[in-house]
Amino acid sequence: MRALTWHGKRDVRVDTVPDPGIEDAEDVIVRVTTTGLCGSDLHLYEVLGAFLDPGDVLGHEPMGIVEEVGPAVTGLKPGDRVVVPFNVSCGTCFMCARGLHSQCETTQVREHGTGASLFGYTKLYGQVPGGQAQYLRVPFGNTLPVKVPHGPPDDRFVYLSDVLPTAWQAVRYAAVPPGGSLAVLGLGPIGEMSTRIATLQGAGTVIGVDLVPERLERARARGVHTIDLEGAGPHLLDAVRALTGGRGPDAVIDAVGMEAHGSSVAAAAQHMTALLPDRLAAAVMKRAGVDRLAALTTAVDLVRRGGTVSVAGVYGGAADPLPLLTMFDKQIQLRMGQANVRRWTDDILPLLTDDDPLGTEDFATHRLPLEDAPDAYEMFQKKRDGAVKILFNP
């Protein structure tokens, strides 16, 4: 089969690799029809190479058609249409039973002390072959895949793999009161979808902050108050307070994460670490790694006293300094974590109706053949051509 594989920093290629097969009685093999490019994939493209090997298959946002099922699979059959959550979660352990699928005890990567395995990610999360490929082996066939109806286009459902549950959890963790205010930092796929979900769930004022004109325009078109980060400069806090009664929003979502704009020292540290041999780089990142924290510290500054900061952007630093004096003084609630995808899919699925209130069918900005994936990664990283959400068709 053809699959998108990692070969080094900013070096991904579409190669011919062996087809996956049934390895466990509960496995299913899915023929991928659509798969997404995620901002988290760019972390692999840029800064997390120490935890990858050449030839690793990337991608964690797939959906498709079941081609084959293991002998113990009773909930699916060949021909069924499914979405595959990015958490590799069993659905039955202590953590999964509590809705914490990202902490699944069956697939935790204990060697590295991390949570549940993820499709198409690094050794830190199981190094499981990913879904930017023609076929994907999916374990836990009775509990993990999300069965969806035939008929509507893939765009209606593919975001159940990551974008929708991640944004849904970000908004739930933000705990915006009815009619309250929310600021979202970063209007990439997760940030923009968070603004749509918050509006649908009754937030009174939704503010989106970004520096890419196309992203700002997309959010503005759906009624979001937008602020250009570059234009606001040092006056961002004043601009947000002006929209929120002078005290700041009830909640802020950080949808940016480790590669925030404007953190030059941490950016230099990430770059230098990437130049080290893998074994040394991995040791540095696990013990002394730092992130670009501009988005998180901005969230702490913006949120009102007694408000909530919800972190959806991915962070990977082991030695990040936090402004604890300010956080304590402002009595901030902080919630974060990898999305528990299967926890939220049943809540979201009824919204993927003909009315399409979340605008899933026009959410993608680019639909490309998988063979174009290397160019798409570069385009997405450099935010060229209005790229907000890219889908591949294997």
Rank of each mutant, 00 (worst) to 15 (best):
L296E: 10
P78M: 08
S117P: 04
H261M: 04
L243T: 04
G317K: 03
H261N: 08
I197D: 02
G75Q: 14
L325C: 03
I390R: 03
F51L: 02
N142S: 12
S102R: 01
L182W: 09
L237E: 15
A387I: 00
W344L: 10
I348E: 04
L229F: 09
Y377F: 15
I348R: 05
P129E: 08
G223C: 09
D11I: 00
D238Q: 10
T226N: 12
D154V: 00
Y377W: 11
G151W: 01
A3S: 10
A318Y: 06
D362S: 07
G180N: 11
A319K: 05
L118K: 10
D155L: 01
G306S: 10
T35P: 05
R13S: 09
D291H: 08
P249E: 03
I253G: 11
V209Y: 03
T33M: 06
L185N: 11
H271S: 08
V83T: 11
D155T: 13
L229P: 09
N142P: 15
E217I: 00
D24N: 14
A319Q: 07
E61S: 06
V309P: 14
A72S: 14
A203V: 05
C104S: 11
D210K: 03
A183N: 08
R342N: 12
P277A: 06
D238C: 00
H261S: 10
A97T: 14
G49R: 00
D53A: 00
V109F: 02
Q103F: 07
L322G: 09
A72N: 10
D355C: 13
T35Q: 10
A25M: 07
P145E: 13
A312W: 04
L164V: 14
A116T: 11
V171H: 10
L229C: 10
P165R: 06
R137Q: 08
D11M: 00
G21L: 07
R31F: 03
Q132C: 10
